[in-house]
Amino acid sequence: MAGKPILWYFNGRGRMESIRWLLATAGVEFEERFFTTREQYEKILCDGVLLFQQVPMVEIDGMKLVQTKAILNYIAEKYNLHGKTLKEKAFIDMYSEGAYDLMVLIMAYPFLSPAEKEKQLDLISKRATDRYFPVFEKVLKDHGQNFLVGNQLSMADVQLLEAILMVEEKKADILSGFPVLQDFKVRISNIPTIKKFLQPGSPRKPVPDENYVKTAKLVLQF
């Protein structure tokens, strides 16, 4: 039997958090290796396993995978979270990319100056309410099903819930004008594996703090 996947990143959200979400949704236990010093990072760089000198990296099924989208797609395929047909896969990828684009705006937030943070909050709120959430509200309303694609849980649903919760951390009433997404949030949050991941003590990481920012800058030297 293959061992647990091993996740190489910082002890924080960043680009690894969606990977944690997807593995947890699939009910897969995993181990984590956290970078805390530049020396640790340089060692793994010298070992040649980071193809593009970037993290996240996930060891799974005898492979050392890098690039977030590739990792997510592999996990989604492996655990039946990527649709049944080519058309379904295309729509899942499209919706996932939309949710991830919104999350990237929030990932950048902790690294900004106070003045930049204020502008970023406005941008996050505007993009969520004007660009991204209206699309998902319409998709769910138009086909009247519980999930975004194929009436079964997929990577797209998981990433949309993650995005919703991340935006709500910045603006609690962000879903006030999106009743369908409000129902979606409750429904997906209560899927047993996801509900477990949302409980205290799970591998889910908290909102990035100053220590996370400091560590990332130290390790990556930026």
Rank of each mutant, 00 (worst) to 15 (best):
N211H: 13
G177F: 03
L160Y: 03
P203V: 04
I75Y: 11
F136A: 01
C46D: 13
Y100W: 07
P203H: 02
E77T: 11
K185T: 01
V58Q: 04
D47V: 01
E88K: 14
F35W: 07
A216H: 04
F111H: 12
Q40R: 07
T25V: 12
H143G: 08
E42G: 06
T129A: 11
N211R: 10
D93G: 00
P110M: 11
G201R: 04
V55K: 02
V58M: 12
V139F: 02
L218Y: 02
V104D: 12
L7V: 14
I188M: 00
E88Y: 11
L161D: 00
E169R: 15
L220I: 11
H82Y: 15
Y9A: 07
W21H: 00
W8G: 01
R131E: 13
M63W: 05
K196C: 05
A108V: 05
K214W: 05
G48W: 05
K78D: 06
I75L: 14
P203G: 06
V219G: 03
K217L: 14
I174N: 01
E210I: 08
P200Q: 08
L181F: 03
Q67K: 07
N211M: 11
Q40S: 09
K214R: 14
R20W: 07
R187D: 03
L105Q: 13
V58D: 06
F10W: 10
I106H: 04
Q40W: 05
I44V: 14
E29I: 08
E118A: 15
M57D: 01
I188K: 00
E29F: 06
Q145F: 02
M166S: 15
A26R: 10
D209C: 09
D173E: 15
L123K: 15
Q182M: 10
A172T: 14
I191D: 00
G12P: 08
L175N: 00
K217D: 05
L220C: 05
P110H: 13
M16I: 14
Q145V: 01
I44S: 04
A90F: 15
N211V: 15
S96P: 06
L22C: 03
K84R: 15
T85P: 06
I6T: 14
I194H: 00
L50E: 04
G150P: 07
L50G: 06
Q152R: 15
G62D: 07
G48L: 03
A156Y: 02
R15F: 12
G3I: 14
G83D: 10
P203E: 03
P200Y: 09
Y212K: 09
S176V: 01
Y95S: 00
L123T: 15
